[in-house]
Design a binder for these strands. Structure first.
Lengths: 331, 331
DNA sequence: ATGAAAGCGCTAACAC
DNA sequence: GTGTTAGCGCTTTCAT
C-alpha cells in the first residue's frame, strides 16, 4: 500500500498530475465530478501528500521551530505542551531545540530551523544571550518569530509574557505581610528580561513598604545546586535573613533543597516565596508559596499568535500578549 | 546572503552542480584542488545544504520521530532530553508527538511521522494501546523503531527498558523491612508492559516474605487526581493499609497529594514507596522513597540504538537494553 | 475544465 | 575528473 503519489492516482484515473493536484486542493477550475472521482479514489488508496515535496516546491514546511533553554523543566515542558496543542490543531509540526543556556546552541538552533525551512520560530532566550544580532538574521529573512518568557529588549516584536513585575511585587508583599523584614532575592542572570522585571517588582514592593533595598541580599545564581547552597548559607548565617524570594523554577528547587539542609529549626524561621511551575507545590517540605505562570496558555497563545502571523496575507503589527501570574499560598 | 544553492556555487566557480555536490560530499572522484576551491567558496558564502531537497531525493530525512504519552512529565521530559542529546550529536532532528494517552493520537502520530519521512521512531505506548496492528505498518515499511518504557509484548524488537520487576521488588521490600504488612499497590492500566512487570515484582516480593497477596489492595488508577484521592481514602479507612507502593510518576504525585489530605497524624502511619523521576524527592512532604529510572540514559541509549540501526548497512538483530532502577531513600 | 511542462535543490547513473 | 541528464513529488504557469 506504500507511498502512493499523484502520478499514480493520475494514471489510475486517466488524468494528469496537475488535474489531480488541483482536484485535491479543491481548485475552482476542476469539474465537480472529476473532483469527486479523485477524492474518492485518493481516499480509497489512503493517499497522503508528501509534505517534503510540497515544502521544496513552495518553500514552506508547515512546521515551526521552538527554541528553549531546557525541556526537562516544569515551566518549559508545560509551555511546549501548549504549543503542541495549538500546532496540532492547526496542522503544524513542531521542532524543538534546546539551548542548554548556551548562546552558541541558540545560534545553531536558529540555523537548523532555517535549514528545515520552518515557517516560524517560538523562542525563549538562553541565559547567556546578551546580544541579539543572531535574531536580526531572522528579521532580515522575514521569518516570523514569537518570543516568550525571556524576551529581547525591543518593543516591535511578537511576544507572550507574564506580568513579572506584578508577580514579584505580590510575592514580596506576601512575605512582608507575614512580618518579614530581611528578604533576600535569589534570581537568574541579570541579562534576562525576566530577571530585571522581577527584581524591579521586588525592589518596588520593598520601597512601598519602607524597607530599604539591600544589594547584598540580591544574589544572581546559576543553576548549579552547590552554588545555591553556598548562597543560602551565607544569607542565612551572615546576613541573617528571615525570608527568601526565589526568581525561577530550577532556582527555587535548588534553594529549597539548600534551606532543607539547614535543618528543621532553621527552616521554620525562613519564609519562602518563589516562581515555580511545579504541579504539587503543597507537597514541598520547606513550605513555599508559589508564583505560577500560566505555562500552558503561554504556549498556546504563542503558537496561535505565530501561526496567525504566518498565515496572514498582510502582516499585522507585532503583538504583545501579557498574561497574569497567580499565587498558590498554603494558608 | 540568503539561500545559496549548489547551482549558484557552480556558476560562480564554473563547475557543474554535480561536481559541486560531489566535492562537498568529499567524493573520491573529484580532484583535490577542485574540492578545496568548492569547500572554500561554499564556506565563504555560508552555504548550507537544503535538507528538504536532500530528503526528497534520497527519501530519508535525517530526522527521527518520538512518540510519547506526555511531554510535561518528569520522566518523559528527561528521556526526551537524552534523545535530543544523542540526536544532536549525530546530526538528527527530532519530531515529538504526544499521544495524551490516546490510541487515536498514537496512530495519527505514526502517520504524521511517516509523512515527514522520518528515518525512524522512538516510542512509548499510550495507556490505551491494547492492540498493535498500527505498529505492523511500520514493520512492513521496514521503518526502524525503538521502544522504551511501555513496550509491546514481543521479543524481536528494539527496546530500552529498566528492570521493572527488580525495581518493584526492591521497593516493596523496603516497605516490608520497615515492618509493614498491608501494602497496597496503586498502578497504571494493566495493559501496559510496565504495569505487569511492576505488579509481578510487588507480588513476588510479598510472597517471598510470606505476606499474602490481597487483590483488593491492588488498584489500577487513571491520572485523574480525584480518583487517586478516592482510592487512597478507601484503602486507608476501609482496608486499613499501612503502606503504599505507587506504580508511576504522575500517579505518585496524585497519591501523595491524597495522602497529604489525610492529615498529619494519618500520614505518618503510611509508609510510601513509588516510581517517580522528580528531581528533589527529599523535598516532598508525605515522605516518599523514590524508585528512579535513569531517564536520561534511557533516551540516550534509545536514540543511539535507533540511529545505529538506521545507519547500519546490514540490519542487525533487534537489541534489548535493560537498565537498572535505583532507589533514593531518605534514611 | 484539463494537460504539458518547468522547476524547487539535490543526488546519482551514465556519459566522456 | 568533470559534465549531462533524469528524477524525487509536488505546484503552478501557460497552453488548449
Amino acid at each position: 500500500m506504500s507511498k502512493i503519489t499523484l502520478k499514480e492516482i493520475g494514471k489510475a484515473l486517466n488524468l494528469s498530475v496537475s488535474t489531480v493536484s488541483r482536484a485535491l486542493r479543491d481548485s475552482y477550475e476542476i469539474g465537480e465530478k472529476t473532483k469527486e472521482r479523485v477524492l474518492e479514489y485518493a481516499k480509497s488508496v489512503h493517499y497522503r501528500p508528501n509534505p517534503i515535496a510540497q515544502s521544496l516546491k513552495v518553500n514552506k514546511s508547515h512546521s515551526i521551530c521552538v527554541i528553549i533553554p531546557e525541556i526537562a523543566n516544569n515551566f518549559f515542558s508545560e509551555v511546549i505542551n501548549g504549543i503542541d496543542y495549538a500546532a496540532y490543531e492547526r496542522g503544524y509540526n513542531v521542532f524543538i531545540f534546546q539551548t542548554h543556556e548556551s548562546y552558541e546552541r541558540e545560534v545553531s538552533s536558529i540555523h537548523l530551523g532555517m535549514d528545515r525551512r520552518v515557517d516560524g520560530f517560538i523562542m525563549s532566550l538562553s541565559g547567556k544571550t546578551d546580544h541579539y544580532d543572531h535574531l536580526d538574521l531572522l528579521k532580515s529573512e522575514e521569518i516570523p518569530i514569537v518570543y516568550f518568557d525571556r524576551v529581547p529588549p525591543a518593543n516591535n516584536i511578537n511576544k507572550v509574557v507574564v506580568n513579572n513585575f506584578e508577580g514579584a511585587y505580590n510575592g514580596t508583599k506576601q512575605l512582608i505581610n507575614k512580618g518579614k523584614k530581611k528578604i533576600a532575592h535569589i534570581t537568574t542572570p541579570l541579562i534576562l528580561s525576566i530577571t530585571k522585571e522581577r527584581l524591579e517588582g521586588y525592589k518596588s514592593c520593598l520601597r512601598d513598604h519602607d524597607i530599604e533595598v539591600d544589594e547584598a541580599l540580591i544574589k544572581f545564581c546559576s543553576f548549579d545546586p552547590q552554588e545555591a547552597i553556598d548562597i543560602v548559607n551565607k544569607l542565612v548565617y551572615e546576613d541573617q535573613i528571615d525570608a527568601l524570594f526565589l526568581g525561577s523554577d530550577r532556582l527555587a528547587l535548588n534553594a529549597l533543597n539548600a534551606v532543607k539542609k539547614l535543618g528543621a529549626s532553621m527552616q521554620n524561621k525562613i519564609e519562602i516565596v518563589g516562581f515555580t511551575n511545579m504541579k504539587y507545590v503543597d507537597l514541598l517540605s520547606p513550605v513555599i508559596c508559589a508564583i505560577y505562570q500560566p505555562a500552558l496558555e503561554i504556549g498556546h497563545a504563542a503558537a496561535n499568535l505565530l501561526i496567525d502571523y504566518i498565515e496572514a496575507r498582510r502582516k499585522p503589527e507585532p503583538k504583545q500578549i501579557v498574561l497574569k501570574t497567580f499565587m498558590k499560598t498554603n494558608d
